[in-house]
Design a binder for these strands. Sequence first.
RNA 1: GCGCUUGUAGCUCAGCUGGAUAGAGCAUCGGCCUUCUAAGCCGAGGGUCGCAGGUUCGAGUCCUGCCAAGCGUGCCA
Length: 586
Amino acid sequence: MKQKLESLLQAAVAALKNQAVLDAEVVARINIERVKDPVNGDFATNLAMLLAKPAKLNPRQLAEKIVAELASDAAITKVEIAGPGFINFFINPDTQFQIVKQIHDAGAEFGKSQIGAGKRVQVEFVSANPTGPLHVGHGRGAAYGSAVADLLDAAGFAVEREYYVNDAGRQMDILATSVWLRYLEACGEVFTFPSNGYRGEYVRDISANLHQKAGDLYRHAAEQIFVDIPADEPQGGDKEKHIDALIDRAKTLLGTDNYNQVFQAGLDDILADIKDDLAEFGVSYQHWFSERLLMDDGSIQQALKRLDEAGFLYKQEGATWFASSRLGDEKDRVVIRDNGQSTYFASDIAYHMNKLDRGFDQIVNIWGADHHGYIPRVKAAMQALGADDSKLKVLLVQFAVLYRGDEKVQMSTRSGEFVTLRQLRSEVGTDACRFFYVMRKSEQHMDFDLKLATSKSNENPVYYVQYAHARVCSVLRQLDEKARQRDIQLGFDNLNLLVEEQETALLTTLSKYPEILERAAVYYEPHQLIHYLRELANQFHTYYNAHQFLVDDDKLCNARLNLICAVKQVLVNALTLLKINTPETM
RNA sequence: GCGCUUGUAGCUCAGCUGGAUAGAGCAUCGGCCUUCUAAGCCGAGGGUCGCAGGUUCGAGUCCUGCCAAGCGUGCCA
């Protein structure tokens, strides 16, 4: 309908250009919106107000000229000029009924669009370091990222979901060393565990597995390990120096092969857990991209070479710097440290070069909001590589701040004191988790009170929406129990009996679904879908309470059943897209 | 200090990307089950859209300056 109105208005503008009312070069951006108050019709455009200035007419005069040029159309019953110059359109109610048939015919496809057809988009999300299980902060990124990917999918884009695995670097060495030390404890060695090591219980589990498989293969005496190691912080030393020395000691005592085996044991277990966790959360990926791969296959050297050739690298104080400040960053950044090791940022440059080389039309990165300062340097790198940095869209997800009652829960992977996504899912349920996470705009700070979220109360809006679906199913069951048959065709033939205000409201809301889906996709805003679902469920519940569906009149009964089945279909489509279940009974 | 994000009802949040009288949920108060599931519905109260300017036919939305909160500002990842 919007498209029809747009083309009618476009034609009217063209006619006015011919009459020299408007200059030929005036570009009309036609904006059509749905009207809140029905007295102002169904759709409205502010076109006359936008073009008033270039036309040198007051908006209402111009509106009259536009309306005079509008071709008549059976779907439009009335066109009015209102307020400061709005043009209001009143739609023939008969055309509204068609939506029920459209939904029935399109089924699961209803609402999908092809605006992204032919375009490849990559969505990278979560990408948490594999140093521990996912926590509730990652959960928000997982829910948001997968919803964005699924929305783009529904909009016709070819979507590739990717997880960047930071399986290289110091944090992973700390993990490997932590696994080894817990393993030694399992062997019976006694010592003080480093304060900066990973202290979570999951490390003990990994170590126990390792001990079971390998026996005492990696065992060394505690005295041998801790000799000449600088003191840990609680002993008046430096926790960073302490742990770095232990990493070196682990590598020396174990030798390359054994160290790598311990390292791999930790990585494999944690990554398997993350994959499993995400799969249960309804999140799947096409690619798991390893940072180590970039280091091993020469991608980093290649990326740095390209930056160097473009004249963006220089040496200073023994390190190699990328002149990102010439491309909008605050300051230049180190890519190779004075000890010869490349930085995390160097990996990221190579990673984004890799993404560009894969030829995506659009690259979407979903990051925790704490990484926002990172955006300018990555964009700078893309420019320096000769790429169009507008291909990269970085979406930020604010952390969910956890509360237990009034107490703020501290979240640190290292301290081992955190609530995992797995715990949250088992307490709240996967459906409610996904719904809650996606309910709010991603960049909005989020207070997550565990007490409230874990209380399985009827305050939960996910139940409200699911209940609407269950109620439709219940009506259909009742029909069966009363030994009545649905006559779908009879219902379609009598849609014009749907004249109650609740029915009209539902017809309008159902017809909005494709627009909502499209908007949610192009703006990366899945919360719009949630709000739509609540509105649709609300209108259905209102309808349910106001009118009986299983009435004696077969024509009316079937018309109503067709309508509520259309509601059911849209609920299913939207909830399925969000990976939320649609129970038939509750 | 500088940068990014946020500030809307008692609380948690929407606000169709500049449109018509700023909306939901929770909480509070008052109604509705012999009828398809009351995990529901209907009604009431509740607002200086952080503050002050500006842009224009029109600003919660855009610009500037303040105020407040969160995050960032490593040769960590």
